[in-house]
Design a protein around this nucleic acid. Structure first.
Length: 617
RNA sequence: GCCUACAUAGCUCAGCUGGUAGAGCACGCCCUUGGUAAGGGCGAGGUCAUGGGUUCAAAUCCCAUUGUAGGCUCCA
C-alpha cells in the first residue's frame, strides 16, 4: 500500500502540435504571455552569461520557468538584474517571429547549445513526445525569434514583447533541476517566474502566495500548538502531537472509527515489528527494502519495524480456515508504520518517516469484487466529505509492463474500478501503466494551500500477497479458492491528512473538530466564579471549554482567543452575571450580544451535530 | 540524495564591511478590575546549530557536519 505520490508533470514545449488543448481565451492568452516571458528572460540571462547553455523554458500554472547551465550559481541580486533587463527588452518591443526549420538548420542554429541539440535529435528521430511516449504524428521543428534571441519552440507567443506588461512579471526563485528530470544527468539552474496580463493580477497572485504562507500547516502547527517536529533531538520526519493537535487527531480518528464500525468493518490491532520471515514471505525484503529500517536483533533473530500493515492482517485472516460465508471480510486498523525517506523529501506533516494509516484490507471472492469496490469508494467519499473535502482529483492507474497476476484478473479489476469511478461522477484521469506491479488502483488527491496535490485515499488491488501467503477460502463447492484482496486507506496518513486539513481550514476548524470550542472571558476577575460555573455546565453538555483566567485585560483575551481561532468567545461582565447570560462573540468577529446560557448552548450543539463549517445554523 | 539559500532568547526577527549580543511577543513579579483584536512598570531568559580553521580578536570570514526552506529526483 502506497499512500504517497504527489503528482507533478513537467511541461516540455519545443515543438508545434497541430491541435491546441481546450483552453479559454484568457488561459491561452496567459499561456502565451508566460511562454513569451520565459523567452525574454532567457535572452536577459544569456546576455549576462554569454557562455550559458539553455535547457527548456515552458509556461506552467501561474507562471513559467527556464533552465540554464551557467558558469556560477545565481544570486538574488542576479534576479534583480535579469528582471530589469527583461523590462527593457519588453519596452524595446521586438516582434516574435515564427519560422519552421529543417533538422539540419535547427542543428546549425543551435551548434553551441548541447541541450538543444539533444532535443533536436530526439525530435528529428520522431522518437518520443513530452511524456517520453512514441510520437503519433510527424513533427515540424519550429523556432521563435525576437530581437537577438532565437529559441527552438513550438509556441505560441504574443505578437511582440511590447505586449507584455513589465510590471505584471515577477521572478520568484531559483532552484536546481536535473536535465530532463533525470537524476543521472547534469543539474541545471532553474528560474521560476510568474506573469500576468496586468500588474493588478500579479498583485493578487502575490497576495495569494502570502495568504498560502499564512495557512502553511507548519506555521499554524506552532501557532495553534498542534504538533512539533524536533529533528535535532528526535529525528527528522517524526511528529510529536501536542494536546491541541492530539485532540484534533482523536476527534478525526474516533469519528472515522465509528463510521467504520457502522459500515461493517472489523477493527484489529497488530504489532509494530515482525520477524524477517514475515517480510520475506510478503516480498517486502525483496522489493521494498530501501524504504525499510535496518533490522534489530532479538534473540539472534532479525526483526523489522513495519513499513506496512498488510502482512499482519493477512496473518489474522490465515489464522484459521475461512468460508465463503464470512466474506467479504473488512479488517481495519489505524496502523503506525515507519519508512525511510531521503532527507531532502521530508516536509512538515506532509512527508514524514513515521505515520499512521487508516488502513484496511478487504478480502472477498472474485464475484463480490465489483460490489466491494463500489462500497469502498462510496465509503471513502462519505468520510472525505464529512471533513469538508469536495474538490478531489481521482486517478486510475492501470496495468504496468512488469506485473504479477493474469491479464483477465487485471482486466476485471480495472473494469470494476472504472465503473465505480463513472458511477461516482468524480472527474478522473487514467494513468496508463502506472499501477503497482501487484494490481491496479484508484488514488484520490487533495490539494494543500499552495495548490500542490497530495495523495490521500488509495484503493489498490493486490494479486500478489494472496499468492505469497497462500490465502484461501472454502467455496460453496467445497473446494478451496483464492480470495481477492483490496488495500485501502481513506485519510491515507493521519499526519498528512491533518496537515492538509489544517491548511484547508487555515486553522479555523469546524466546531466538531475544534480542539477548544468555547473560551469564557471574564471582564474582571469578579466574574471568574460565574465563568467556572458556566464552564462546568457547558462541559457537562459535551463541549470543550476553557476559562481565560489570566490577569489580563478582556481586549487582549479576545485577541488571543481570536488568534487561536476559537469558534465561540463568551464574554462575561457584571450585566451577564446579573442576567444569567453570556455575551457571544464568534471568531468571525460577529457580536451576538447577551443571551441566556441555554440559548447559547443549543448553538454549538446543532452545529456539531451537523458537522457544519458554520458557527450558527 | 542533488542544487541554492538559511540556522541568533520559547516564538517572530534586528545585529552594515570582524571588536565577546538587541527588540517585540510569550514567561515571572508588581500596579491597574478594564465592555468586544495588544493598559503600565520591573525582571528573568542566549556557549549566536555543532565541530574545526584563519585572526590580537569571530554571531560576523573559511571548511566540515547536522538540520531547515524552495525546487529537482524519489515515493514497488
Amino acid at each position: 500500500m502506497e499512500p504517497f505520490a504527489p503528482r507533478w508533470r513537467g511541461v516540455f514545449g519545443f515543438w508545434r502540435r497541430p491541435k491546441m488543448e481546450n483552453q479559454s481565451d484568457h488561459e491561452s492568452r496567459l499561456h502565451r504571455i508566460r511562454h513569451s516571458a520565459a523567452h525574454v528572460m532567457a535572452q536577459a540571462v544569456l546576455e549576462q552569461f554569454p557562455e550559458g547553455k539553455l535547457g527548456i523554458g515552458p509556461p506552467i500554472q501561474d507562471g513559467f520557468y527556464y533552465d540554464f547551465d551557467l558558469p556560477r550559481p545565481l544570486t538574488p541580486a542576479d534576479l534583480e538584474t535579469i528582471k530589469t533587463r527583461m523590462q527593457e527588452i519588453i519596452q524595446e518591443d521586438h516582434p516574435f517571429e515564427l519560422q519552421d526549420v529543417s533538422p539540419e538548420e535547427a542543428r546549425r542554429l543551435n551548434a553551441d547549445q548541447p541541450y538543444k541539440l539533444e532535443l533536436i535529435d530526439k525530435l528529428a528521430a520522431g522518437e518520443v513526445d513530452e511524456d517520453d511516449e512514441p510520437m503519433e504524428e510527424e513533427v515540424i521543428i519550429s523556432t521563435y525569434r525576437h530581437g537577438t534571441f532565437r529559441d527552438l519552440c513550438r509556441g505560441p507567443h504574443v505578437a511582440s514583447t511590447g505586449e507584455l506588461d513589465p510590471d505584471a512579471i515577477h521572478l520568484l526563485s531559483t532552484a536546481g533541476a536535473y536535465w530532463r528530470g533525470d537524476e543521472s544527468r547534469p543539474m541545471l539552474q532553474r528560474i521560476y517566474g510568474t506573469a500576468w496580463e496586468t500588474p493588478g493580477e500579479l498583485q493578487v497572485h502575490l497576495e495569494r502566495l502570502e495568504e498560502a504562507r499564512k495557512r502553511d500547516h507548519r506555521r499554524l502547527g506552532k501557532q495553534l500548538e498542534l504538533f512539533s517536529l524536533e529533528p535535532d533531538l528526535l529525528g527528522g520526519g517524526l511528529v510529536l502531537w501536542h494536546p491541541k493537535g492530539g485532540m484534533l487527531r482523536y476527534l478525526a480518528e474516533s469519528f472515522c472509527k465509528e463510521e467504520h464500525i457502522k459500515a461493517g468493518y472489523d477493527l484489529v490491532y497488530s504489532p509494530h515489528i515482525g520477524r524477517a520471515a514475515l517480510w520475506e514471505t510478503s516480498g517486502h525484503l525483496d522489493f521494498y527494502r530501501e524504504s525499510m529500517y535496518s533490522p534489530m536483533d532479538v534473540d539472534g533473530q532479525d526483526y523489522y519495524v513495519r513499513p506496512m500493515n498488510c502482512p499482519f492482517h493477512i496473518l489474522i485472516y490465515n489464522s484459521r480456515r475461512r468460508s465463503y460465508r464470512e466474506l467479504p471480510l473488512r479488517l481495519a486498523e489505524w496502523g503506525t508504520v515507519y519508512r525511510y525517506e531521503r532527507p531532502g523529501v521530508l516536509h512538515g506533516l506532509l512527508r514524514v518517516r513515521g505515520f499512521t494509516q487508516d488502513d484496511a484490507h478487504h478480502i472477498c471472492s472474485p464475484e463480490q469484487m465489483p460490489e466491494e469496490i463500489s462500497f469502498v469508494l462510496d465509503f471513502c467519499l462519505h468520510i472525505l466529505r464529512s471533513f469538508g473535502f469536495e474538490d478531489l482529483t481521482a486517478y486510475l492507474s492501470t496495468m504496468p509492463e512488469k506485473r504479477v497476476g493474469e491479464k483477465p484478473q487485471w482486466d476485471a479489476a480495472q473494469i470494476a474500478l472504472q465503473e465505480v469511478l463513472e458511477k461516482s461522477g468524480l472527474e478522473y484521469k487514467v494513468d496508463e501503466g502506472a499501477g503497482a506491479f501487484y494490481g491496479p488502483k484508484i488514488d484520490l488527491n487533495i490539494r494543500d494551500a499552495l495548490n500542490r496535490e497530495w495523495q490521500c485515499s488509495t484503493i489498490q488491488f493486490d494479486f500478489n500477497l494472496p499468492e505469497r501467503f497462500d490465502m484461501e477460502y472454502m467455496g460453496e463447492d467445497g473446494q478451496p479458492h483464492r480470495p481477492y484482496m483490496i488495500h485501502r486507506a481513506i485519510l491515507g496518513s493521519l499526519e498528512r491528512f491533518l496537515g492538509i486539513l489544517i491548511e484547508f481550514y487555515g486553522g479555523a476548524f469546524p466546531v466538531w473538530l475544534a480542539p477548544v470550542q468555547v473560551v469564557l472571558i471574564p471582564i474582571t476577575d469578579k466574574q471568574l466564579n460565574y465563568c467556572w460555573e458556566i464552564s462546568k455546565k457547558l462541559k457537562a453538555a459535551g463541549l470543550r471549554v476553557e476559562v481565560d483566567d489570566a490577569r489580563d485585560r478582556m481586549g487582549n483575551k479576545i485577541r488571543k482567543a481570536q488568534e487561536q481561532k476559537t469558534p465561540y468567545m463568551l464574554i462575561v461582565g457584571k450585566r451577564e452575571v446579573e442576567a444569567g447570560a453570556v455575551s457571544v462573540r464568534l471568531r468571525t468577529g460577529e457580536d451576538l450580544k447577551a443571551r441566556p446560557v441555554d440559548e447559547f448552548l443549543a448553538m454549538p450543539q446543532s452545529v456539531i451535530e451537523a458537522r457544519s463549517k458554520e458557527l450558527i445554523l
